[in-house]
Amino acid sequence: MVAAMADSDSGGVSRRGFLIQSGTGSAASLLGAASLPAVRSSAQAAPAPAAAPITEIGPGPVPVQLQVNGKTVAARIEPRDTLAHVLREQLGLSGTKIGCDRGACGACTVWVDGIPTPACMTLALDVAGTAGKGGRAARPVTTIEGLSTAQGTLHPVQDAFVAHDALQCGFCTPGMVMSCAALYERKRSQGQLAALSEGEVREAIAGNLCRCGTYPHVVRAMLSTAKGTGNGKNGGSR
């Protein structure tokens, strides 16, 4: 099966990573070329010698692999399935919510390549890895379930949300946390965490609607966690 994918001359770092992953673990066996009737590939004639071949998938369901929360998992998806749908209905990751299904509420926010992305407006094939000629690597997806460690240690942003009551009904919360945690990580990697401003927080969550009105507490949680005071147990908000 590896051979089936290796004909691309544009294989970069990420592609090699995919080959390694798909060569190990149970997902790989699902991706044997024989099980991929729907994935066709045709080397494109000129004019673009450097281009990857064209891949055709579907319209019926095809086996793919996704890289979610650091694990490679197998799924059978149709080209029209959104990432939000596949995460929730196939992978059991129902922390990602659907509020509008149209990119307008942010409830479905996950990270793709570390960047907050609307999972309802992303097709699962956009991030999936496929086998066959022209197959390609899955792009890493992080959902709310992947933010805290397996041991249950919360991300500092999650801790701060709890401490400052930055959640009410909680339905927008996973998306809100994903937007905030991305901001937190970005500022941290720049060594700028302590300089986090209220305006930056508001901008970062401008695409996350909260019908319950948690915004002021979200801002408070973010500012205090950025300054290292967000994890007070009780009454952190006062």
Partner: peptide, 19 residues
């Protein structure tokens, strides 16, 4: 959403050809 075939290209030439 209707079911469709996903045709993946990486160059504009390919896209034009496919379209």
């Amino acid at each position: 959403m209707n079911a469709f075939t996903w045709v993946e290209v990486t160059t504009a030439e390919q896209a034009v050809a496919q379209l």
